[in-house]
């Protein structure tokens, strides 16, 4: 009996000691000790998983945002005190659980570090919901086009459009089968789903713009199109729909800093007029957007992004 007690105490001591050692080692690490200080309203990550090799779906605690957000709106996220502010579209929300879902592609340092976090970890801030909600109405037949990670952005819009009584046809695409995301979710929320891959490893062999062209050629009446994805894809979709004068809404994701209309980093040219994507958008009539300007402004910090990535130590996430 006594031996058992001693053994228990000893084990307990070792365990406790271990915790202290860990805490001590952890305090030495610059990443946690320095970067997670400061008075932030922390938001906890409750779920995380990879939708594809480089696209992550993450659920965050943000009860007030969950209550307020509408399709098309976004949040600005800061992973830690020294981090960048990056805009990410809200893909979904759960009012009861008080959570929002974000879907992002790992492209730079911030998204790499964000993806390296796990359920139970905190990020230092979520601001939102920002931007204007998507104009939702019963338009008739709508086509939701999503390319790459853009499927995550078009998904909540498709859900809302379906709820409003539209016939929703969705076209989603990726470079190859492994990079396709949200296929089942999109299928469930669409009356018809067309899948394309650039290499033909799944579905229609080609681009989403090609699939859309086929649909237009089949004389199906389309009342409105929502196209979200990489800049060349949105541009290609707009080029397809322009001759037919089908209203095409695109969601722009330029570089932002404050995302409340204060800095003008996100300025885009729409119908020859300068607009701020954060407060005037993020959605605009695609036929009026200057995509070349958008693409060149998105390249503004390529060198710095590379430098940042080289220093980043977050890439060691084990999956």
């Amino acid at each position: 009996m006594r031996n058992a007690a001693v053994f228990f105490h000893f084990t307990f001591f070792i365990l406790k000691f271990n915790i202290y050692i860990n805490k001590f080692l952890c305090a030495l690490c610059e990443l946690c000790s320095e970067r997670l200080r400061g008075d932030f309203a922390l938001n906890k990550i409750t779920e995380k998983f990879y939708l594809s090799e480089n696209v992550v779906r993450m659920v965050l605690e943000a009860p007030e945002i969950a209550k307020k957000r509408k399709a098309g709106q976004f949040v600005v996220i800061m992973t830690d005190e020294k981090g960048e502010r990056i805009p990410l579209t809200i893909a979904d929300s759960d009012v009861e659980k008080g959570t929002i879902t974000i879907i992002f592609q790992i492209v730079g340092k911030t998204t790499t570090c964000l993806a390296a976090l796990n359920a139970g970890d905190n990020i230092s801030g979520v601001q939102g919901p920002l931007g204007n909600p998507t104009e939702i109405d019963n338009f008739g037949t709508v086509v939701c086009v999503g390319g790459g990670v853009g499927v995550g952005v078009v998904y909540p819009i498709a859900v809302s459009l379906r709820k409003a009584g539209n016939r929703v046809v969705s076209i989603i695409g990726a470079r190859n089968r492994d990079l396709l995301i949200l296929k089942d979710e999109m299928k469930n929320t669409s009356d018809e789903l067309i899948v394309t891959t650039d290499d033909g490893s799944y579905g229609f062999h080609g681009f989403v713009s090609g699939a859309l062209q086929d649909m237009i050629d089949s004389d199906e009446k389309i009342d409105r199109i929502f196209a979200i994805g990489p800049v060349p894809m949105m541009q290609a979709i707009c080029d397809v729909t322009r001759p037919y004068k089908i209203k095409t809404i695109v969601s722009l994701n330029p570089i932002m800093v404050d995302a409340t209309g204060m800095c003008g980093a996100c300025r885009v040219s729409v119908k020859g007029e300068t607009k701020f994507a954060c407060v005037d958008g993020p959605e605009f009539d695609g036929h009026e957007v200057d995509f070349n300007l958008l693409a060149s402004r998105l390249r503004m910090y390529l060198n710095e992004e590379r430098e940042s990535m080289e220093r980043c130590r977050c890439g060691r996430d084990e999956r």
């Binding site: 008075d39 945002i65 601001q127 939102g128 920002l130």
Partner: peptide
Amino acid sequence: KIITNTVIGRLK
């Protein structure tokens, strides 16, 4: 009391 990351007009 200071609450950050809250855009009045958007969140509330």
